[in-house]
Write a protein that binds this DNA or RNA. Structure first.
Ligand SMILES: [Mn+2]
Ligand SMILES: [Mn+2]
Ligand SMILES: [Zn+2]
Ligand SMILES: [Zn+2]
Lengths: 135, 135
DNA sequence: TATAACTTTGTAATCATTACAATTTTAAAC
DNA sequence: GTTTAAAATTGTAATGATTACAAAGTTATA
């Protein structure tokens, strides 16, 4: 369930054929607050879908990002992480435990100078530091 | 030259022994507006320092980041990029040409909710889109 | 000069991601 | 319900950035 509709219907609305694997992968992302990597998603799902291929996870996540179903986070230096929450919000990564946290922020309040003629498609506000459970 | 002092003196001030390679690598970063990757720095310098090792470039950039001489940018999905300008500013990456541009932004104007007890060490404001020369 | 600490180098290993071709599944046409 | 083509999934191999590691070179100090 997301925005009151099923995952399946949500996929259709975004122009993606809701195959079993796609439903399960998207479900993983919208139910998780952990901003998982492709590997994380694979490890989670392989427990219940023993035939799942890692390639499918990678391809599907790329497809979802293209269709605007998920956000791609480059916050972590060595792996791409994905977010099922496409509403604008900020991210904090803990350099101790590597967990990624959400927080509320309104970047519309910012004025950017020096980008005349640039087309902005995505905004990302990232913080790096030590989270409250690692302090 | 940076902040009116030599690269060599700048390294010393930050507690880094100014070896020839370190001076040349830092020079690359402070003179460039391109936010180069380790590979970029290596390709640039190997022309004049034929004995330079890529490992030295990687190790040195990591050392510089630890000592606060450069910023590490995770804006580009598949390689780390470095910035010799450690003053706070925003970054725009063009998804067509992959160039990274600077812009002015004051993130102190932002209020973040939900980070009580978190220690913030770095702030990054990234934009993704199409730059004016690629539109 | 002898010695230890520091720095650089080259090679091999690691690990995330992508390329690609084969197989399977799904849906439409007959 | 069989045939056929398109779509989706799978497994394996390749790629490419980064890291590990040990040897060689350099610098500073006793
Ligand atoms: Mn998030
Ligand atoms: Mn910059
Ligand atoms: Zn933590
Ligand atoms: Zn461009």
């Amino acid at each position: 369930m997301i925005n009151g509709i099923s995952i399946e219907e949500y996929l259709r609305q975004k122009g993606v054929n809701p195959s079993y694997q796609r439903i399960r992968i998207l479900e993983c992302l919208v139910n998780s607050k952990s901003h998982p990597s492709a590997e994380d998603v694979y490890k989670e799902l392989i427990k219940e879908i023993p035939t799942l291929s890692k390639t499918t996870v990678y391809n599907t996540l790329e497809l979802f990002a293209d269709k605007g179903l998920v956000l791609t986070l480059s916050i972590d230096g060595n792996q791409t992480r994905y977010d099922g929450n496409t509403l604008e919000h900020g991210h904090f990564i803990c350099e101790s435990c590597n967990r990624v946290y959400d927080f509320l922020v309104d970047t519309d309040a910012l004025t950017c100078e020096g980008l005349d003629g640039f087309v902005i498609k995505e905004k990302h506000f990232y913080l790096r530091g030590i989270c409250s459970s690692c302090v």
